[in-house]
Amino acid sequence: MNRIPAPALLLAVAGLIPFLWAALTALGLTSAADWNLPAVLGGDGRLLMVRYGGIILPFMAGTLWGFATRATGGLAFAAYTASVAPALWWFFMPGTTAETALINMAIGFAALLLIEVAFDRWELTPPWWLAFRIQLTIVVLACIGIGIWA
Rank of each mutant, 00 (worst) to 15 (best):
D34Y: 05
N104I: 10
T81V: 13
I144A: 04
T25A: 10
A12F: 10
N2L: 12
W65G: 15
T25Q: 05
W65L: 11
I17W: 11
G73C: 05
P18C: 03
L102P: 00
A87H: 09
A87F: 09
R46L: 03
G42F: 11
G145Y: 00
I103C: 02
D44K: 03
I138K: 14
I115T: 04
M60C: 04
F67M: 11
T69A: 13
W122K: 05
L136C: 00
Y52L: 02
F92W: 10
A118D: 00
T63M: 14
P58W: 14
P7C: 12
L10Q: 06
A26V: 01
P94I: 14
W90L: 12
Y52C: 10
L11S: 04
T137R: 05
A68I: 11
M93V: 13
V84G: 15
A32P: 06
T137D: 09
R51S: 06
I55K: 10
I134V: 15
I55S: 08
M60L: 15
F19G: 08
G43H: 04
G73A: 08
W89C: 14
W149C: 06
R133H: 00
A71P: 11
L114F: 15
N36D: 09
A118N: 00
T97L: 03
M93D: 06
A32K: 07
I146Q: 00
G15P: 12
Q135G: 15
L9F: 12
A150N: 08
L47M: 07
A23M: 02
T30K: 03
T63C: 11
L24Q: 04
E116P: 05
L24Y: 06
N2D: 13
L124Y: 10
A98F: 10
P18K: 09
A98I: 00
W89A: 12
P5G: 15
A33R: 13
W90K: 15
W35E: 07
F119L: 08
W21M: 06
T125M: 12
A110N: 10
L113Q: 07
A12L: 13
M60P: 02
A111S: 14
V139S: 11
E123I: 05
A14H: 07
I146R: 05
T100V: 03
L136K: 04
L102R: 02
L75N: 07
A82V: 12
A142D: 02
T69V: 07
G74V: 05
A23S: 11
I115Y: 09
E123F: 00
P58K: 12
W21Q: 05
I146A: 05
D120Y: 10
A85Y: 05
L141V: 01
Y80V: 14
G62I: 12
F67T: 06
M49S: 03
W128L: 06
A131M: 11
S31L: 00
M93T: 12
V13R: 02
Q135K: 13
E116S: 03
G28M: 02
W90P: 08
P126S: 09
M93I: 06
S31F: 04
I103E: 00
A14F: 14
G145K: 03
A131T: 14
D44P: 14
R51Q: 08
G147K: 09
A22N: 01
T63G: 08
A39P: 00
W65P: 03
T81L: 15
L102D: 00
A110I: 06
A39K: 07
